[in-house]
Design a protein around this nucleic acid. Structure first.
Lengths: 210, 210
DNA sequence: CCACAAACAGGACGGTCGTCCTGTTTTTAA
DNA sequence: TTAAAAACAGGACGACCGTCCTGTTTGTGG
């Protein structure tokens, strides 16, 4: 007989859900504590996952990190930056909205952990080619989306000698750097300042082109 | 009677020199490979220092990291940014000069390791309060120096509503972010673009204030 | 010349981390 | 129904790393 050995703890295989839970936990840990400072045994505990399950889905830590970048970090940039900017009526308004949203979010949380993409870019891009390629692709999509929006702003009227790609690069750089300073000083002040400066500059230059 | 045991390797005590050699090696390692990715046994080998000597000068790795930040990183910001900007005739020219210097230096080396301050800021500022305080102080000096130079630019003529501190923050943020992108893409293009954009913006705005 | 502290040598020790291995359970395919 | 693969449990193993400890040598003040 041996009717289900006392049926102590029934197990339900849920490969997709477990994988998602793992990547979610790893994303939170990697973007706040950092990749190297996050031990796998901590992730296992936080996600409620055993070593066997982890090894089954991600044979190595690098595989988990790559999944975090390609699945979560890319999505984070998409939802917090690209989508709002595309939806805004003008680039300047979109950027302003992104900054205010992020700032209020940070003030609510009380701590500044930094930009997920930037954090992992500085820690991992020089460590492995796969990491670098994944991160570079996200930066490219980010810049391209802003440049396209800037182009759309002015094409309504006429063409001018405004350098869309250069301005998009400056926006991404200023945001990343401002977030880095915000993390270093644990204050949203750099973000507020840079957000206002950027929108003011874009408004000036697009006005000028009319 | 035991005349100097074969005098195999004469030892010369040089506390200051050994300390400098250690901090130099650690600075190079921490700013290129990262703090956590640099093992002490590697630093010992690279600096030609034994464990006892290391422990004597720096009882813990954190103490070594703090010395690197306070001694070398602060000096690097001073020599590559603050001094050239102060010496330039105008802020825009100073910034342009800093960017071109750094870009040609990177092209000569062939690899982009990132801004030392920014690298350590993102990795360590949230890990220890001493790290954060030291890094924050450097950021403050950096921003203040640029803001002072901007003030000096315009005080030659008359006062205006130009926000010096905000522009200085934007400059530091844009540079840090551009260097982060340069590191992620292993290309100096973001630095070139942001350098040109920044100087162009500053020239426009200071011209406007006249 | 002589104590005494500073400067350094060299290695041991405990803890941690990533990986892998063996076994068990669940699901799928035939 | 049954064989096989996928999904998971749980822990062992080896490597690595930061710290500390005991000894030896060099400099210094009296």
């Amino acid at each position: 007989m041996a009717e289900r050995p006392a049926s102590p703890n029934r197990r339900t295989n849920d490969p997709e859900g477990l994988r998602q839970r793992l990547v979610d936990t790893a994303f939170a840990a990697f973007t706040t504590r950092g990749y190297h400072s996050s031990a796998l045994h901590e992730l296992k505990r936080e996600a409620g996952v055993t070593g066997g399950a982890l090894a089954h889905h991600f044979p190595t830590k690098k595989a988990l990190g790559l999944a975090v970048i390609e699945d979560r970090v890319a999505e984070a940039v998409e939802s917090t930056w690209i989508t709002p900017v595309r939806a805004a009526t003008t680039t300047a308004e979109g950027i302003q909205e992104v900054f205010t949203t992020i700032i209020s979010e940070l003030e609510r949380k009380g701590v500044v952990s930094g930009c997920p993409l930037n954090n992992l870019a500085l820690e991992l891009s020089r460590e492995d080619e796969a990491f670098q390629a994944a991160i570079e692709a996200i930066f490219l999509r980010w810049r391209t989306a802003i440049a396209d929006k800037l182009r759309a702003d002015l094409r309504v009227d006429r063409a001018c000698d405004f350098d869309f790609d250069a301005m998009a690069t400056l926006v991404v750089a200023a945001y990343s750097g401002a977030m880095a300073m915000a993390k270093a000083t644990q204050s949203v002040a750099p973000l507020k300042v840079c957000g206002e400066q950027l929108t003011s500059i874009i408004r000036n230059q697009t006005q000028q082109g009319r």
